[in-house]
């Protein structure tokens, strides 16, 4: 029972804490660019304001348009439920493995792209078209990373994979190195950060995510934005907890959990700095350069798998 409660607590932490990662990255970027940073509470204020506002719907919006934010949000929350943030071996991890996690993210994408096409504006269609094209390259790369991990740990269960990587300790494996690089590239693309997409812009030539949700307002928009924050947090948690699994609580004592929490915060803060530095130094790519970038991610992930099979199995 306590385990289920902990799982619930963890997902609450995930959902509530997700905006903090975004604002942290923003603040570091502001610091690097000599700008004045918004306060830590800014994303919460934005969400709160959107929740209070009235929804303005396009005249010809179909019921799917109104359902989509709820589905996208719940699919993302469910995906967050399966990702260990502070502790592993939680019972929710058995409901869905890494492949199902990809499936959850795909549900979210399916509905956000459909919602983009619902009103029938050129922006929405453009955003949807770009999103499905880019993600159809990013998703296989992510699956290849998962295959590498699954074959290494002999399990597709995220919790078991992390347990396995904690157990073997710090060993430099080429396959994991390739997988990490692949996952980093995929994460940047999937969460719509610079250099693939820019969440801060509304420039029609470049935008992907913002174009799809252009017609949304009020609580619908808030849900879509929040889902995007959670998605960033999911990828962040995946990267730090798979490849740097130190500190994760594997039994449920107060001390272990506190250590897990502190370790998680520290790792995510560092990841945030890395992302902010990358976003400050890189320029946004042209849309049609992105496939090359994603091909690189796919290639790295494939190399990871192959190097695992060739170098690490049966030797």
């Amino acid at each position: 029972m306590i385990e289920w409660l902990l799982a619930l607590l963890q997902v609450t932490l995930f959902v509530i804490g997700a905006p903090l990662l975004v604002i942290w990255i923003k603040r570091v970027k502001c610091f690097l660019q000599n700008r004045r940073a918004p306060p830590l509470a800014q994303p919460y204020r934005d969400l709160g304001k959107l929740f209070r506002k009235q929804v303005v719907l396009a005249e010809n919006a179909s019921p799917l348009f109104r359902m989509a934010p709820y589905i996208v949000f719940s699919a993302t929350v469910l995906a967050a439920l399966t990702v260990p943030l502070v502790a592993i071996k939680l019972p929710t991890a058995a409901i869905a493995d890494m492949l199902v996690l990809v499936g959850f993210l795909a549900i979210g994408r399916f509905f956000i792209t459909l919602a983009g096409m619902d009103v029938g504006t050129a922006f929405g269609g453009m955003g949807s078209s770009r999103e499905v094209s880019l993600s159809s390259l990013a998703e296989p790369a992510m699956l290849m990373v998962i295959f590498t991990l699954a074959m290494t740990a002999q399990s597709t269960n995220l919790s078991s994979v992390m347990q396995y990587l904690i157990d073997i300790g710090l060993v430099l494996r080429p396959s994991l190195l390739f997988a990490l690089m692949g996952l980093l590239l995929v994460a940047v693309a999937e969460t719509g950060r610079v250099p693939v997409d820019n969440p801060a812009t509304h420039l029609e030539l470049t935008m992907v995510h913002e174009a799809m949700i252009l017609e949304y307002s009020g609580r619908h928009l808030a849900l879509m934005e929040w889902a995007a924050y959670i998605k960033l947090m999911i990828f962040g948690a995946l990267i730090v907890n798979i490849f740097f699994p130190w500190g994760l609580a594997s039994h449920f004592t107060a001390g272990a959990l506190a250590l897990g929490f502190v370790a998680m915060v520290a790792k995510l803060l560092i990841l945030g700095v890395v992302l902010a530095v990358a976003e400050t130094t890189l320029a946004k790519m042209r849309v049609f350069r992105v496939p090359e970038y994603l091909n690189l991610a796919f290639l790295l992930a494939l190399l990871g798998t192959l190097s695992h099979i060739i170098l690490e199995v049966g030797v």
């Binding site: 699919a75 469910l78 058995a94 409901i95 549900i107 269960n157």
Partner: peptide, 16 residues
């Protein structure tokens, strides 16, 4: 190695 619980997934999505 791997487990998937489709009923719980459905319940989870509808619940959320």
């Amino acid at each position: 190695v791997a487990s998937y619980s489709a009923p719980l997934v459905l319940v989870g999505i509808l619940g959320a």
